[in-house]
Amino acid sequence: MGKIVLKDIRKTFGDVVVIPGVNLTIEDGQFVVFVGPSGCGKSTLLRLIAGLEDQTGGHIAIDDIDVTDAPPAKRGLSMVFQSYALYPHMSVRSNIAFGLKMAGMPKDEIAKKVDHAAKMLNLGDYIDRRPGQLSGGQRQRVAIGRAIVREPKAFLFDEPLSNLDAALRVQMRQEITKLHQDLKTTMIYVTHDQVEALTMADKIVVLNRGNIEQVGSPLELYESPRNLFVAKFIGSPTMNTFSGPEAQRRGAATIGIRPEHMIVSRTDGDWKGTVSIAEHLGSDTFLYLDVPGVGPITVRADGEAGFHAGDTVYVSPVSARMHRFDESGMAFK
């Protein structure tokens, strides 16, 4: 079990309001990702759930038990830190066993559990080494192993992949997803990387300045962002947005269209522009256009389309994929 309910959670540091008031329910077994730009309060929210920070107001319940004032150890949660936070003076084995030892578990039982976790994460070869002798990916696995053995109600991940190189990040992403499928334990994962959010989450929580902007599945956020912030934060490259005559013509304060939802042509279309930069990525080409009267636009074209800087291009937005927002930045339903 691992159902977590946050009710009116507030956090201030002196006069600075980090989280003005958050209500959120995380169901048992869900993989929830907190995503948002740096300084949006996502890590603070995670630390509040962990019990490493005091909330200024509100309540936290885990499995319907109020843990608002419980110390971290009493909440039954495990955490994987950004820096892995392994104990440098202990072997991999002792690192994993430390939590069980603190809980006063008998030695043979600890050994059994550590071996099990080690097998699961392929730690066998370096179980007796110190963290200092391991690579980044291996340290990450040890940190996860340390979290697993305690059989927590939920796992908390604080930007766990941000210190790894790109290739390893993709691999570890898949391993964590696989782990969630095997364990079916609740996981809360904090990241600023929307790709991680989209690929891993059952449910994404988009945070901005301590407020929840939207909660939903990856596809929901992509297809129907509730407001401009979510629209621009989710998706890469970023959604094109325009205000002015083009928006007014469609009865909105702002309109948005994703680069992949436009038809590109050399001969005709709604908007005529000049290619300022063309990025050839193989499967796709991203074109950065200057469109007089509309503004700069990013569009995705076919990888073999053969556009170059200076070319004249016509683009037409697919109207069914157009997003419309009112003056306050909220999407029209």
Partner: peptide, 22 residues
């Protein structure tokens, strides 16, 4: 790094054990 002491706290170490063992 403070995170290592926090990890010990998550692992259920008391303040005293946090100072002595970590």
């Amino acid at each position: 790094p403070g995170e290592i002491l926090e990890a010990a706290r998550m692992d259920g170490a008391t303040r005293w054990k946090e100072i002595v063992y970590v």
